[in-house]
Amino acid sequence: MKSVFTRSLILIALSAILCPVAVMTVQFYLAWVALVPLFIATLEAKPRKAFMPGMGFGLVFCAIMLYWMVGLVSDFAGSGGYGIAFYLIALILSGIYFGSLLTGISWLAANDRPAWLKGLLAASLWTVGEWIYSSLLPGMPWFGLFRVSNMVLDNLYAIQIASLSGAFIISFFIVWINYMLAAYVAKRQWKMVAVPLGALLAYMTAGFGMYEANRPSKTTQHLGVALLCDNTPPNVKWDEHSGNELVTNLLKLNNDALATNPDIVLWSEAVVPWTYRNDDDFLAEIRKMAGTAPVTHILGMTTDYSAESIYNSAYVLLPGGGITGRYDKRYPVSMAERPMAFISLPAPAR
């Protein structure tokens, strides 16, 4: 009994490590096996006993995936306590989510159904789960990192099917193939392994066909984009005494970007920490540096919307210097850019 428990623990931990590695490093080949150990460990689990393995998986997955959260939130809030609190909240939510997900999958798999059908049901529930937390928690975008579709984003053929119904359908196929593979390997039905491998081959063949059918012609005009990310520490960016240093750095980065002759210079979110004004000296210098070059700037700045509201915005600065439009962030980050359950970070995070 102890050896079975230890084996299950090792398998769950293995998946909990493989999944974040596959997501963070975008490992296409790992995507099709990363969940296999987890499913092998929970194939025979009763619904009431599947929650804890799922929670353990979610806790380890989240702990690795969101390791950066403590430092980032601490820097923005100016206190390590906020970073730890954010991290713990994410861990708890992740544990509850994956615990509930594995409970549901175990319930669907409880009947005597063929592995391919159990896999379809498991993949359907997993995909619905991804859609639910994406819809209910739009202000917590880091949970989008848990989508298994992120594992294959570097493969042109694997992502083609997303044009039909978004990234969720990619997650569906990844989970389905992982589940079937786990079921057949666990029962040592080696010949049946051909089923998930065949499904994978069909999936990739369909992606190849979709890509070739819509392959851009060699005469297609290319668009050059220069991504400008300053990576200035928050305690420097939001310090009123470091304005000159910040501006000097941003103008240098802009000059380096313009040297690549881009069509668009894309500045990162809130790269400019003060609110937009049309007569801003900084914007005037950006216009001057561009000169007559046909370059468009998409610039992250805040907007003084009202006496009580400041929006996180992006401004489009056209060739010639005119502002053609503004986009305001639709889903502010919960607890940072807007309160959640009466909890919010202190300035300068807000």
Rank of each mutant, 00 (worst) to 15 (best):
L156S: 11
L156R: 12
L156M: 13
A158R: 09
A158K: 09
I159N: 03
Q160A: 10
I161M: 10
I161N: 03
I161C: 04
I161L: 15
S163N: 14
S163Q: 12
S163C: 06
L164R: 07
G166D: 06
G166Q: 04
A167L: 14
F168Q: 01
I169T: 03
I169S: 02
I169N: 01
I169K: 03
I170Q: 07
S171H: 01
F172Q: 00
F172I: 02
F173G: 01
I174Q: 05
I174P: 05
I174G: 08
V175R: 08
W176R: 00
W176T: 01
I177A: 01
I177F: 05
N178E: 00
N178D: 08
Y179Q: 04
Y179F: 15
M180G: 07
M180F: 07
L181M: 15
L181C: 14
A182K: 02
A183V: 06
Y184P: 04
Y184E: 08
Y184I: 10
V185N: 03
V185S: 07
A186C: 09
K187W: 01
K187P: 00
K187A: 14
R188M: 11
Q189T: 06
W190N: 09
W190Y: 15
K191C: 02
K191T: 10
K191Y: 08
M192Y: 14
M192F: 13
V193L: 15
V195I: 15
V195E: 00
V195A: 14
V195D: 02
P196W: 13
L197D: 08
L197T: 10
G198D: 07
A199N: 06
L200I: 11
L200A: 13
